[in-house]
Computed example of a mutant assay.
Amino acid sequence: MTPERARWVHLVVAAVAWFALVLQLVLVLQGGRVLDEVDPPGLVARIYRYFAYFTIQSNILVAVVSTMQSRDPTCGIRGWRVARVAALVGITVTALVHFFLLRPLLELDGLDWLCDKLLHMAVPLLAVAAWAWVGPRPRIALRDAAYALVWPVLWVAWTLAVGQVDGWVPYPFLDADEEGWAAVGITCTGVTILFLLLFTLYAWLDRRLRPAPR
């Protein structure tokens, strides 16, 4: 795989991710449903909640990283490597958590259904497939993975803190009032372990798979 072809692969991933993000934002601004909400909140709250979802943040990371890699598919700057591995692991967790924990809760149709599939299935599959096919590899060091872990840890801390103030959390398994702190703690521990395993797996694969692009 040459850098020229790698640019096109990353461009496709970026285009799908940006399309899904913009579509979801338009639906949110129009009062579309978010998970199992029936009555949408005010405009400011809707915008905040849009960006508060880990799904949205991981898709934004993928969109930004893929856009930049469509310009320079061989970039190896440390800060860039951290963002890349954070996007890769974050979007993988998004897909896994959605499939195992959230999918049974969703009853969507029309554009809401389409956007849900794009954000939780299409973009994760494309992002992981693009990395496996065109890289860039090798680029992941354990130190980069450690830095990348800061983002999800801060996200959980912020989400739980804000949830205690206004009573809203983006995902039902983080609702301490409904689930109890013990259940939330177990869930957070499990997701943290999942993150650590994925960071380790991708770092290992990064060294084992063929370097790309050429």
Score class of each variant (00 low, 15 high):
residue 188 C to R: 02
residue 106 L to T: 01
residue 139 R to T: 13
residue 133 W to D: 09
residue 151 W to Q: 00
residue 15 A to R: 06
residue 187 T to M: 06
residue 140 I to A: 02
residue 171 Y to D: 07
residue 121 M to G: 07
residue 19 F to N: 03
residue 77 I to V: 11
residue 198 L to M: 10
residue 193 I to K: 01
residue 148 A to E: 03
residue 120 H to Q: 12
residue 76 G to L: 02
residue 124 P to L: 14
residue 67 T to Q: 06
residue 96 L to G: 04
residue 156 V to Y: 08
residue 175 D to S: 13
residue 74 T to Y: 03
residue 109 D to C: 00
residue 110 G to F: 06
residue 159 T to P: 04
residue 65 V to E: 01
residue 36 D to N: 15
residue 208 R to T: 08
residue 150 V to H: 01
residue 211 P to G: 10
residue 112 D to L: 11
residue 151 W to L: 01
residue 9 V to W: 09
residue 99 F to N: 07
residue 116 D to W: 02
residue 137 R to M: 06
residue 105 L to V: 11
residue 76 G to F: 02
residue 32 G to D: 13
residue 42 G to K: 06
residue 205 L to E: 05
residue 49 R to Q: 15
residue 155 W to K: 09
residue 205 L to S: 04
residue 124 P to H: 13
residue 86 A to T: 12
residue 150 V to G: 03
residue 8 W to H: 14
residue 48 Y to A: 13
residue 131 W to C: 05
residue 119 L to Q: 07
residue 22 V to H: 02
residue 134 V to N: 01
residue 48 Y to M: 09
residue 76 G to P: 00
residue 3 P to S: 10
residue 106 L to W: 03
residue 51 F to K: 06
residue 37 E to F: 02
residue 197 L to D: 00
residue 155 W to C: 07
residue 110 G to M: 08
residue 180 G to N: 13
residue 11 L to A: 15
residue 112 D to T: 05
residue 194 L to A: 15
residue 40 P to D: 11
residue 163 G to I: 13
residue 43 L to F: 14
residue 162 V to F: 12
residue 170 P to N: 11
residue 125 L to I: 15
residue 41 P to T: 13
residue 175 D to A: 12
residue 14 A to C: 10
residue 34 V to F: 09
residue 175 D to T: 13
residue 147 Y to C: 09
residue 105 L to K: 10
residue 113 W to I: 04
residue 204 W to M: 12
residue 97 V to M: 01
residue 186 I to P: 00
residue 189 T to Y: 00
residue 112 D to W: 00
residue 208 R to H: 08
residue 13 V to Y: 09
residue 35 L to H: 13
residue 62 V to C: 12
residue 59 N to K: 02
residue 34 V to I: 07
residue 20 A to T: 12
residue 37 E to Q: 14
residue 209 L to T: 03
residue 176 A to D: 11
residue 200 T to Y: 03
residue 122 A to D: 08
residue 177 D to Q: 12
residue 2 T to L: 08
residue 82 V to D: 00
residue 41 P to G: 13
residue 4 E to N: 13
residue 163 G to S: 14
residue 195 F to K: 07
residue 45 A to H: 06
residue 117 K to Y: 08
residue 88 L to N: 03
residue 101 L to M: 15
residue 90 G to A: 11
residue 125 L to F: 14
residue 205 L to R: 05
residue 80 W to Y: 15
residue 195 F to G: 06
residue 97 V to Q: 00
residue 159 T to I: 05
residue 62 V to P: 04
residue 22 V to F: 09
residue 198 L to G: 05
residue 13 V to G: 08
residue 60 I to C: 10
residue 213 P to R: 10
residue 213 P to V: 13
residue 95 A to C: 09
residue 180 G to W: 11
residue 156 V to F: 12
residue 23 L to P: 01
residue 71 R to D: 02
residue 182 A to W: 11
residue 44 V to D: 04
residue 26 V to H: 05
residue 96 L to P: 00
residue 121 M to P: 00
residue 154 L to E: 06
residue 183 A to V: 15
